[in-house]
């Protein structure tokens, strides 16, 4: 599929969508948002890129293999859980080393901690899984359309770089 309008628009839209997805992830603990929604939105950005410029381009932009991203996300979530487990004996207990909450519910310090790591893991898992399935589906159908023999599995030779 080659649409000039789509590919031009995508060049501007995709950074914006990705930034928005990170923002939604970031604000998630206090306002609507979070890792799952952020991950879905980021996957949407790559779906747009795949539609506009093809899956090979989208794969290169994603840089890591989708499955690796999903696995890394699962690892982040686990580490987030084990952190609390090691520190307090309760698996998945929230750890906020730089944050204190006073009696009125006001927070002081930096909001980095195990829960954020856990939520980021969810973000990566959703992003990796959705893009992985999407690319695999696109590739298999593109190949189907082009005939069984001609399309290379991975367009990673010099011309495509």
């Amino acid at each position: 599929m080659n649409s000039l309008i789509l590919s031009t628009a995508a060049r501007f839209l995709i950074p914006v969508i990705l930034a928005l997805s990170l923002f939604i992830f970031w604000r998630g603990h206090n306002e609507p948002g979070g890792g799952f929604i952020g991950g879905l939105l980021a996957a949407t950005a790559f779906a747009l890129l795949a539609k506009a410029s093809g899956t090979a381009k989208a794969r290169r932009t994603l840089y890591l293999r989708p499955r690796a991203i999903a696995a890394f996300g699962l690892g982040c979530a686990l580490v987030g859980g084990i952190w609390g487990g090691l520190a307090t004996g309760a698996f998945l207990k929230g750890m906020w080393p730089f944050l204190t909450i006073d009696a009125e519910g006001h927070k002081h310090g930096l909001p980095f901690g195990s829960i954020m790591l856990f939520d980021f893991g969810v973000y990566l898992v959703v992003l990796g899984t959705v893009t992985g399935i999407l690319f695999a589906l696109e590739d298999s159908l593109a190949e189907d359309a082009a005939g069984a023999e001609d399309v290379p599995l991975d367009k990673e030779d010099g011309r495509w770089r």
Partner: peptide, 9 residues
Amino acid sequence: KAGGHNIVN
């Protein structure tokens, strides 16, 4: 307990 205002999250 959890330091977050968004209950769903």
